[in-house]
């Protein structure tokens, strides 16, 4: 296995505030790694350190074979950074931006012009090439930013919250572009607070909270750590809710079901199951038998596979952090009639 990034024990504090508390990281060549975490988790700090913009307090890392601390110039030659705030010059036109960046990579004037034209076409910006970037839409700016990162195909591409602030259509479009880049054997380190985004793009996900990576694995591995299928019951009234809660409680004994989460306010109970219809039927029968489901107060039932949100919630135990994520529910979820 060959790695594009190997980092060990990266620590960084600002004053008394510890931002990164010993982060280890290994990115396979050609993979997309999704670094997931709420605002303030340290994602951007980690990116800035690996992109040579900031020195860690301690720890070591190798990026594309270059030591981060002793050979930052070698690292710079192998990476491209696409920042949270699109790092392009909004007074210049799209074409001028790309030609400038190409010039700074020492392509030579003619080659710079040719490469800029190629990239403008590839990123669907040819029509807007002579307009100032200030007049671009958010999606166009991000595409230009990505194009600038691809002037010379980097070994490692940082995408720091690439779709923050984009409308859903531009986001889908940008995801397509990222997949296209990943297919060109570029290793991508993607940071995002949208779990859906990591689910869509990343081969491997690392969850960063309070300066530590608390979980890592493929999105599927992380999700299956919470059971295969979650049945969600939403009750029309408190009486039915309480009956069901009592029937499913461990003290009721021997039902074979456990409560993953219960919400008194929303009258909602989540129960993990194996996803079979037999188990679902057992559950519904149990509810009918115990007064959790009556003709007057019958719950609505839906099942869904655990999303990365659920994993994140389970790991961090803070609804607050995932609350920043207006995560669209994953497509695997299916609504069932009762």
């Amino acid at each position: 296995m060959s790695y594009t990034v190997i980092a060990e024990g990266i620590r960084k504090s600002f004053g008394a505030q510890v931002v990164l508390d010993g982060v280890d990281l290994a990115l396979d060549r050609g993979s997309v790694f999704g670094l997931l975490g709420p605002n303030g988790a340290g994602k951007t700090t980690l990116v800035r350190i690996l992109a040579t913009l900031m020195r860690p307090d301690s720890g070591r890392a190798t990026v594309a074979g270059h030591d981060l601390l002793t050979d930052p110039v070698g690292v710079k030659g192998a990476i491209s950074l696409t920042g949270q705030y699109a790092a392009v010059d909004d007074v210049l036109t799209g074409r001028e931006n790309l030609e400038m960046m190409a010039g700074l990579l020492h392509l030579g004037r003619r080659a710079a012009r040719a490469r800029a034209a190629e990239l403008l076409a590839e990123f669907d910006l040819t029509d807007a090439r002579d307009r100032r970037v200030r007049t671009y839409s958010g999606g166009m700016r991000r595409r230009l930013d990505l194009a600038a990162s691809m002037i010379r195909r980097p070994e490692l591409l940082f995408l720091d919250e690439p779709t923050t602030g984009l409308d859903p259509r531009s986001r889908e479009q940008l995801w397509g572009t990222v997949r296209h880049l990943a297919a060109q054997d570029v290793t991508i380190l993607l940071t995002t607070q949208y779990l859906e985004e990591a689910d869509q793009l990343a081969d491997t996900v690392g969850m960063l909270t309070a300066g530590r990576i608390v979980a890592r694995g493929t999105p599927d591995e992380l999700k299956s750590s919470l059971g295969t299928e979650i049945v969600r019951l939403r009750f029309p009234d408190a009486r039915a809710y309480q009956s069901a809660l009592a029937a499913l409680a461990p003290s009721a004994g021997g039902t074979g079901f456990t409560i993953e989460a219960a919400d008194d306010g929303a009258l909602r109970i989540d129960i993990p199951t194996d996803g079979s219809s037999a188990r679902l039927r057992d559950l519904l029968d149990l509810l009918v038998a115990t007064g959790g489901s009556t003709a007057a107060g019958s719950p609505r039932v839906s099942t869904h596979r655990p999303s990365l949100d659920d994993v994140f919630l389970a790991l961090t135990g803070t609804a607050d952090t995932a609350g920043a994520t207006p995560a669209p529910r994953s497509a695997t979820r299916s609504e069932l009639a009762r």
């Binding site: 800035r48 710079k76 990476i79 491209s80 950074l81 920042g83 705030y85 960046m101």
Partner: peptide, 13 residues
């Protein structure tokens, strides 16, 4: 204040 200096600094210049 913008991000352009960061981009320049991440390049081998």
């Amino acid at each position: 204040a913008g991000g352009i200096v960061d981009r320049f600094r991440s390049m081998p210049i």
